[in-house]
């Protein structure tokens, strides 16, 4: 089972900061990072976002490091493919595989570096949102932004059922492992299918029970949301705007910069 980040979102030190401000900071940082033409701005965003998440929101460094390794290693792997496939500029090195020339050029090296840095910056900004903002608060913001009713209600119910199902899945999975259910490949396919089907059936029953429970409480097809947002202080708003401005300025300033 994967690590569920919701626990940290509910308990971190920035939990009570206004949700809209946190979403604005995270989403704008992602947009600036993606739109940037040079690796400098995304790198700055990555380092500062990591700092904010670890130092201000007090997320354990060890957890943060283990989270960031997976996407960054994937990004590096994919960037190597881009490095070898795209072209332009001066060749740096070339070698032959089965008679085909494969190599890196200055333009492809710049592109690969840019992609790695954008992913790094983007992931750090995404982790900032995921680790500091509880999903329940995001529903309230979606509601204020007038997202379709059905979409919000469905999201809230899916969110509720995820935790119900994870509990069921863990118990069934443990029972299967104890009975050598995943010993051979054949067994594991059987067990996994059985696990999937049983979780589905149990979940379906839970869904039917919920319908009855909701009907008993006069459910009319709409779920109500309690909106309790506090206004953030001027200093915090100011700091956010200055930070985003600095990131955007850095991206604009270094737009034509190339490493190779």
């Amino acid at each position: 089972m994967e690590q569920i980040l919701d626990v940290y979102a509910q308990t971190n030190a920035l939990r009570d900061v206004d949700t809209r401000l946190k979403l604005l900071l995270g989403v704008c940082a992602i947009i600036i990072g993606v739109a940037s033409q040079s690796p400098a701005a995304p790198f700055f965003i990555a380092v500062s976002m990591a700092f904010i998440t670890v130092a201000l929101a007090k997320i354990p460094v060890r957890l943060y490091a283990s989270l960031i390794t997976i996407p960054v290693s994937f990004a590096i792997f994919s960037a190597i493919i881009i490095l070898l496939m795209s072209g332009g500029g001066e060749p740096i090195f070339t070698f032959f595989i089965a008679g085909y020339p494969i190599g890196a050029t200055t333009a492809s090296a710049n592109l690969a570096l840019l992609v790695v840095m954008r992913t790094f910056g983007g992931m750090c900004s995404l982790y900032f949102i995921a680790l500091t903002t509880p999903i329940t608060e995001i529903f309230s913001v979606m509601h204020t932004l007038r997202f379709p009713r059905g979409l919000i209600d469905l999201s809230m119910l899916i969110y509720h059922f995820i935790f119900v199902l994870i509990g069921e899945t863990i118990s069934i999975h443990t029972a299967q492992v104890l009975r050598h259910g995943y010993d051979t490949f054949r067994n594991s396919v059987q067990s996994f299918a059985m696990l999937g089907a049983m979780v589905f059936i149990r979940a379906w029953q839970q869904g039917e029970d919920l319908v009855i429970a909701m009907d008993a409480r006069c459910y009319d097809g709409k779920l109500e949301l309690a909106d309790e947002s506090r206004k953030p202080g001027r200093v915090v708003i100011g700091a956010t705007i200055v930070y985003l401005g600095a990131c955007a300025y850095l991206a604009w300033l270094t737009a034509t910069m190339n490493i190779f």
Partner: peptide, 28 residues
């Protein structure tokens, strides 16, 4: 989805179950 919820209210929780199921399955 909106039309379905208006016509048959009981389908919303069942759709949610399917969504949660896809989430749990894809995280395994």
């Amino acid at each position: 989805l909106d039309r379905l919820v208006r016509e048959e209210r009981e389908t919303l929780p069942l759709l949610a179950v399917a969504g949660a199921f896809v989430f749990v399955l894809s995280s395994l």
